[in-house]
Amino acid sequence: MEREKNTIDLRLFASLAVHMPPDANRFPISAGTTVAQIVDGMHIPRPQARLVFINGVRKELETSLKGGERVAIFPPLGGG
């Protein structure tokens, strides 16, 4: 159970989808890890991780995670 808690459900959208790890829906983290650390660890340039939503609510890149969250990261979209 403890181990379950320290995973997140990670979704990377659009151009970031290529960075999706195979275990994205149970992505392991240590409690206190920030979204920025996850982004850096995947070598995603920070301006490309433009929008971060944790459990459906917009948050800063520096937000730290406990485990169990749903994390969605979007690049900027401008096309039409």
Binding site: A14, P47, R50, L51, P75, P76, L77, G78, G79, G80
Partner: peptide, 27 residues
């Protein structure tokens, strides 16, 4: 600004469409 960030940095922002294009069904 809530979507693209502060306007000064957003001014240089390149959207994902530059890489991914704009297919008709999404549009």
């Amino acid at each position: 600004e809530w979507i693209y960030g502060p306007r000064d940095s957003a001014r240089q922002a390149q959207g994902a469409e530059h890489l991914l294009g704009c297919p008709p069904q999404t549009v």
